[in-house]
Simulated scan of single mutants.
Amino acid sequence: MEISFKGKRILVTGAGQGVGRGIAIELWRAGANIVALSKTRIHLETLQSEYPSIDIVDVDLADWEKTRAVVESLGHFDALVNNAAIAICEPFLSCSPGDFDKTFDVNVKAVLNISQVVARKMVENKTHGTIVNISSQASKAALKDHAIYSSSKAALDALTRAMALELGPHGIRVNAVNPTVIMTAMAKVGWADPNKAAEMKSKIPLGRFGEVSEVVNAVVFLLSDRSSMINGVELPIDGGFLAT
């Protein structure tokens, strides 16, 4: 199934590495004009060195006002992928207010912030745009030492549904994908321990963790016209973990 984004302008957050980088590259390959946004400049520069036509922007998404000003300055987009996130894994009894705030500032508030700016311009331009939020299986199932992270992704799912409801009448679709463990640099924070990883894999009917490409393919589909009647879903990409 060939999907083209020729002539479309798409913003991808957290695009410096991991899943976000994979999404940005695949959308670029499909003809999109990509703006890659991340906190870490060096990661963006390595991306641009490989794909010079990808525009890069660095900003700390935890800074509401600066992020808002930067995204406002970028102009109109046809689609948005909210991929940027942080993971702080610690036992429930050790969770601190500082870690809670850090996580929610990036994983939830930044999505609200960026999406408001992008969606308003879609409405103003009468663009039937698409937004995909990168959530997690952790929003649906309790995982040890993931209290704050899981809570942030559950909030993101709820935000996705609210966005789909309110933006749908403007022809803007909003969906989320909920991957299992994808062994990116961020995932290694929680799953580098072989024993812990083996225990998780034993709960996944397919018996393995996911690949970056498997998340990318789902995101590309949800951004495309091939999914034109899909709105407000939270799509597990988990090998059956949530089915058990």
Rank of each mutant, 00 (worst) to 15 (best):
F5D: 09
Q48W: 08
T40P: 00
T46V: 08
G16M: 08
G75D: 13
K8L: 07
V12G: 13
K8P: 09
K6R: 08
L44K: 08
Q17G: 00
V71E: 05
V70L: 05
K8N: 10
L74W: 00
D58F: 06
I56P: 03
A32F: 02
R29K: 15
L61R: 12
V71Y: 00
A87P: 00
P52C: 14
W28G: 05
E45S: 08
I56D: 14
R9L: 07
I56H: 11
I34D: 15
I54S: 10
I56Q: 12
V57G: 11
I54Q: 13
V57R: 02
N82I: 03
R21C: 06
L11E: 11
A15I: 05
A36W: 11
S73G: 15
T40D: 03
K8E: 13
P52G: 15
L47R: 09
G20F: 01
K39R: 15
H76Y: 04
V35Y: 09
G22M: 09
G22K: 09
A62H: 01
S53Q: 13
R68T: 13
D60E: 14
W64L: 14
L44P: 02
L61W: 04
A30Q: 10
R68W: 06
I56S: 11
G20M: 06
S53R: 11
Y51T: 03
G75Q: 12
R29I: 06
D78A: 07
E72Y: 12
L61Y: 04
W64K: 15
Q17N: 13
D78F: 10
Q48M: 10
L61S: 07
T40Y: 10
H43Y: 08
H76P: 01
K8H: 04
I23T: 08
G7D: 06
S73V: 01
A84W: 10
D58M: 02
I10D: 07
G22R: 09
G7E: 05
K6F: 04
I23A: 09
V59S: 04
A84I: 07
R29P: 00
N33M: 04
V59D: 00
I54E: 15
T13V: 03
I42K: 11
V59G: 06
D60N: 15
A85S: 14
E50F: 01
I34H: 13
T67V: 01
V71A: 11
T13L: 01
I34V: 12
A62M: 02
A69I: 03
